[in-house]
Simulated scan of single mutants.
Amino acid sequence: MREAFGATFIGPEGYLNTASYGLPPTATVDALERVHRRWAAGTAVGSDFDADIATGRAAFADLAGVPVSSVTMGASVAALLGPVASALPDGARVLVPEGEFTSVSFPFAAHHGRDVTVTEAPLHRLPEAASEYDVVAVSTVQSADGARVDLTALRSATEGSDTIVLLDATQQLGWLQLDLGWADVVVSSSYKWLLGPTGIAWGAYSDHLVDRLVPHHANRYAGGAPWDTTYGLPLRLTDDARRFDISPAWFPVVGAAASLAWISTLDIAEVTAHCRGLADRARTALGLPPGDSAIVSIPTEHAAARLQEAGVRASVRQGAARIAFALYNTEDDLDRVVRALNA
């Protein structure tokens, strides 16, 4: 058991794999246990989850810096990007970074039959090339190595153009506050730095884009009042981004809302300082180049095996060991890494 920022966590010592999935606060675990008990007792009803959906939506809007009316609830990043990809005209050109997480690139690449092309470029070259494309799609913090796109340059390069800017903030939200409200699309899963379960993701579509999208998964929740839009025609959808809502996964949305509500109360600048401070000290101790991310890529030979032997939970991406410092990590976790790799 450990404490961080006023919450307690059950997670083990040496857990540095938040870039794969985050550990929930005990309050989130308790909320999930309560709803599972209601399920087992047969006392849970669908309307019980409406408040969790509203809480999660508002907290995501706050963390992403977008209007709550622009926020929709999905099951995954890829599913939230599907309507955007489907709305592109035949022959559209999409730009992504080299090695981008495929939940960002595949929804567009799947439309190759309509001559939609997806071009990869080095991350640092995205801003200078973006205005030449119909869409630029990029993770604000790269999953594989934690590299960050220059959002200021990207915004400057695309402002006033017809280029759709799509930002996946999955590896950012929860530890780093950035201005994302200017983008056309902002998406994020809940199960990494937002410390929720899998099965819930959030997206925001800008006003000028939302009317171009078709709610392919229209359902009773897309009507905004699901208990009034359960049966029969005509089609009745909300005027805002809720018309793209999926029918929620009940239990994951409880966990997602509990963690999001707590994170949204934190001073994210303090969280950033904590996470980056540990990451910076790890880079210095391991002789790695400086960085500006909570994710550290370690290309040292046999690093992943040595970390595992030392009880460090990490992952391997693009041939390098990847560690990620979250708000619940400590100096002891850092020391464990340094001892393992400097022995």
Rank of each mutant, 00 (worst) to 15 (best):
F5K: 13
F5M: 13
P12R: 15
G14P: 07
A19G: 13
V29K: 12
V29L: 14
A31V: 07
H36D: 13
R37C: 01
R37P: 06
R38M: 08
W39I: 14
A41E: 09
A44R: 05
D48R: 09
F60S: 09
A64N: 03
V71I: 00
M73A: 03
G74W: 01
P83R: 01
A85D: 01
A85T: 00
S86L: 03
L88A: 05
A92V: 05
R93W: 00
G99C: 03
S103M: 14
F108N: 10
A110L: 00
H112Y: 02
V118F: 04
L123Q: 05
E128L: 09
A130S: 07
S139C: 07
T140L: 02
R148L: 05
A153T: 01
S156V: 09
S156N: 10
A157I: 04
E159H: 10
G160P: 06
T163Y: 10
T163R: 12
Q171N: 10
Q172M: 14
G174F: 00
L176V: 07
L176K: 14
Q177E: 13
D179G: 06
L180R: 04
D184Q: 03
V185G: 11
K192I: 00
W202E: 11
H208M: 05
L209E: 03
D211E: 14
H216D: 15
H217P: 01
P226R: 03
L233T: 14
R236Y: 01
D240E: 05
A241D: 04
D245G: 02
D245N: 11
I246G: 08
G255N: 04
A257W: 02
L260H: 11
L260N: 13
I268P: 04
V271G: 12
A273G: 14
A279K: 09
R281Q: 14
A282I: 09
R283G: 13
T284F: 07
G291N: 04
H302P: 01
L307K: 04
A320N: 14
I323E: 14
A326K: 11
A326W: 13
L327S: 14
D332T: 15
V337K: 09
L341W: 06
